[in-house]
Amino acid sequence: MTDLWTVVITCPRPRNRAVDTFHTQPDKVARLAATWFPAGAEFTLTARTVRLSCSYNYPPKLEHLHEQLAAALACLYLDTRVGKGYRLPRPVRTEIRLDDIDGGR
């Protein structure tokens, strides 16, 4: 049996640390998703929200995934730095779905 863990994380968009929006252009957001997250990850950045959807063949560590997303957002000059680490703005909504991708064989 092959399982696929799909995780969707949604949170408010952090405030912009840069003077302009150059760092949050769609091509830069797509490049960030391809660099930081598994192939096929969907990363959406709107004026109000951040949404990441990605799949794993193993149960992901949610705390690590939240911190990874916050660090990636910091690369887009969004304000997620807290002390020496990174944190997503609250509230954070995390959905996990477990799918049996080979039908139980």
Rank of each mutant, 00 (worst) to 15 (best):
M1W: 05
T2G: 03
T2K: 15
D3P: 06
D3W: 12
T6I: 12
V7I: 15
V7D: 00
V8P: 00
I9F: 00
I9P: 00
R13T: 07
R13V: 10
R13L: 08
P14M: 03
R15G: 14
N16R: 15
R17M: 13
R17T: 10
R17Q: 12
V19Q: 15
V19T: 11
V19C: 10
F22N: 07
H23G: 08
T24R: 10
Q25E: 15
P26Q: 12
K28P: 02
V29R: 04
V29K: 02
R31W: 05
A34D: 14
T35K: 10
W36R: 13
F37T: 02
P38Y: 03
A39T: 04
G40T: 00
T44R: 15
L45I: 06
L45Q: 03
T46K: 09
T46V: 06
A47L: 08
A47E: 14
A47N: 11
R48M: 05
T49K: 14
T49W: 07
R51E: 14
R51T: 14
S53V: 14
S53P: 00
K61C: 07
E63V: 05
H64N: 11
L65M: 12
L65V: 06
L65D: 04
H66D: 13
A70P: 14
A70T: 12
A71M: 11
A72V: 09
L73A: 10
A74R: 08
A74H: 14
L76E: 02
L76W: 03
Y77L: 15
L78P: 01
D79E: 13
D79S: 11
T80M: 04
T80P: 04
R81C: 06
R81P: 02
V82M: 04
V82Y: 04
V82P: 01
G83C: 00
G85A: 12
G85D: 11
R87L: 02
R87W: 01
R87T: 04
P89H: 04
P89G: 05
P89C: 05
R90N: 12
R90G: 05
R90Y: 09
P91G: 06
P91F: 03
P91A: 04
P91D: 04
R93F: 08
T94I: 02
T94N: 02
E95W: 08
I96E: 03
I96Q: 05
R97N: 05
L98S: 01
D100V: 08
D100L: 11
D102S: 08
G103M: 03
G104S: 03
R105Q: 11
R105N: 11
